[in-house]
Design a protein around this nucleic acid. Structure first.
Lengths: 343, 343
DNA sequence: TTTTAGCACTCTCCGAATGAGAGTGCTAAA
DNA sequence: TTTAGCACTCTCATTCGGAGAGTGCTAAAA
């Protein structure tokens, strides 16, 4: 796709103008608004050329032009600059993170809310997660009746918990003893190694071992950590979603964990930490996202713990600013993860 | 409000018909559809009377009638029967709960999803929560670096956890020792009693004690447990929310935890377990809910642990069926809580 | 060769006019 | 007390006719 500088300029301006107004952009209004040093006829000729390249599209004869998905893709790939977030915005965000409790859950909630507020779109963050589950420590805590909470800590620092129901009430002392014993035996072990312990324990220990194994298998299977969402209602204020049926489809993808996981698995999970992925109009694969774009990034420590985050909005979104925001928040989270990994 | 039986019948039929069609109901179509043994003129007279009582309303002269909020309130209060849920629906729901893991979190997620699916509306469930926080047990678990997870169990079985950041790395043995010591000292104590221990511990113990106290204060302050939501997208398919602006306002209330908590606090929290509260059109207080109704209930064990649950939908909702559903799910959850309280 | 002025043409988006349809309230008779 | 009949009202969908915005093409200007 070889475009002249003037064509690139005109494409960029049309995209900016369309993002601002959500309306088709005409040659006259473009020349007027940006004081271009050429006539509207010239612009019209260039527009016709861009339309031939499939970068622009006319909703109908005698309407202005609207960027196509391909147009947006070209814009994002070639024309969008590395616009940094304003310094004071960055400071505000950083400040919020340092003010919050030193607590992964708090960070993630804050991150998803910052993304939603800054971008005015729907946002998501997944908790950091490691592919290999290596045992570090476990606790068993009596809650009430025969219900016991099992807390499992993995080497990366990831935490999982699950309630289990004992066949009969067990005292906290006994639970602590079993947990201590298992912790000693299993430390630094993967699920396979732990499986070899079967038969070396009492009946109660055996039962808990099985649950532990099941949980570790579950962790290794699952592609992501817990999913946090925010800003869903922002979608509803965009004009393209005023017919709420369009919005429903897109929001449905976010709210259905299995759908969202497979979406993430086939896109951003293949990206390196620090990289950004831009999904425009569902890219032909995701029917429900035909009207939407997503900007996704990966954060964390590549070797140990990684998670995904991103925003979902209309195709007509301010890509430069949004990409910077996503990138910045991803970096902040990566730093926080690194910091908490360091002793 | 004294209505003749015939007026009650006509009001009921109009409400049913309006719920079905979302349209104003006219006298002729009503007589036709239900084969009434009276003429449309008679119906018209009764409709005029009901309009005088503020139970019906005309969107404009020469349109049919639409129930007013007051009309719905009268209907719900006086005319709606105790329609039980169909047996096989009840069986399906119960079955789902018994198939799920014995885990409070799983139960709540299932409950909120059952409510959403059965009612085809937005639904919410809050985790069971007790007003008084009485200490039962605590654990401290090293995760990574200086991050430590504090798990706090209250007498009712409620669990809270929080990450804390130690000034320097601490071994798991030391943490377990402190946790054991504190657990022994604090068992069955309220926050005030625990506060008296200040000064009787080493510096590290002291620090953890302070965090423990802060957490217990937080628990006593908070009105509800964690909030689970589901079915938000159902709202968007109702015709009254096709202009998505209306939907945004209502969904916003659900997604803003503080708003939702104060809404619950001023309504269903005053209800006894087993009771049902129906909020129609925001009841003049909740501007954002002017177009909505909520059906709320309280579940759990009145003395120890209670939570709220309910659905949010358009005013024009099938109250009888929805009330039964909410009530049934509340009972199921109450049973599960009671069962897990029993040893 | 490139740019631009001019112009005919196209398509959407109101606003007004119109008629069909549904529903009402009133009156007078059953 | 109920009902048939009727005049009246209001919405809704349709049609029609500019006004406005924008295009593509052509021929002249740079």
């Amino acid at each position: 796709m070889n475009l002249t500088d003037r064509q690139k300029l005109i494409l960029t301006l049309i995209i900016h103008e369309h993002i601002r107004t959500a309306q088709p952009v005409g040659s006259n209004s473009l020349v007027d608004k940006y004081n271009l040093a050429m006539s509207s006829a010239t612009v019209r000729n260039e527009m016709a050329a861009l339309t031939d390249c499939n970068l622009l599209r006319q909703p109908h004869t005698s309407a202005g032009r609207v960027p196509t998905e391909e147009g947006y893709r070209f814009f994002v790939g070639n024309l969008v600059g590395k616009s940094d977030l304003p310094t004071n915005t960055r400071r505000t965000i950083t400040h919020q993170f340092y003010q919050s409790r030193q607590d992964v859950e708090q960070w993630l909630k804050l991150a998803v809310s910052v993304l939603a507020n800054q971008s005015q779109m729907a946002s998501l963050v997944t908790a950091p997660h490691s592919e290999r589950a290596v045992f570090k420590h476990m606790e068993l805590i009596a809650t009430r009746g025969r219900q016991v909470l099992m807390v499992l800590v993995l080497m990366g620092g990831e935490i999982r918990q699950q309630f289990i129901s004992m066949p009969e009430p067990v005292t906290q002392e006994r639970l602590s003893q079993i947990a201590g014993q298992l912790s000693d035996l299993c430390v630094r072990c993967t699920a396979e190694n732990i499986a070899r312990l079967r038969g070396q324990l009492g009946p109660l220990g055996q039962e808990i071992l099985d649950i532990l194994l099941a949980e570790m298998a579950l962790i290794e299977e699952s592609a992501t950590g817990e999913i946090y969402l925010d800003g869903m209602t922002h979608m509803l204020s965009e004009p393209e979603f005023s017919e709420s049926d369009e919005a429903r489809q897109a929001l449905h993808i976010l709210q259905e964990p299995s759908l969202l996981q497979s979406l993430l698995a086939s896109t951003v999970m293949n990206t390196d930490v620090g990289g950004i992925q831009v999904l425009i109009g569902g890219e032909g694969t995701w029917e429900e996202l035909r009207q939407c774009s997503m900007i996704l990034a990966r954060y964390g420590d590549p070797k140990t713990l990684t998670g995904s985050l991103g925003v979902l909005g209309p195709i007509r979104m301010p890509y430069d600013r949004t990409i910077s925001t996503v990138q910045f928040v991803a970096n902040v989270l990566s730093d926080l993860v690194a910091e908490s990994l360091a002793v």
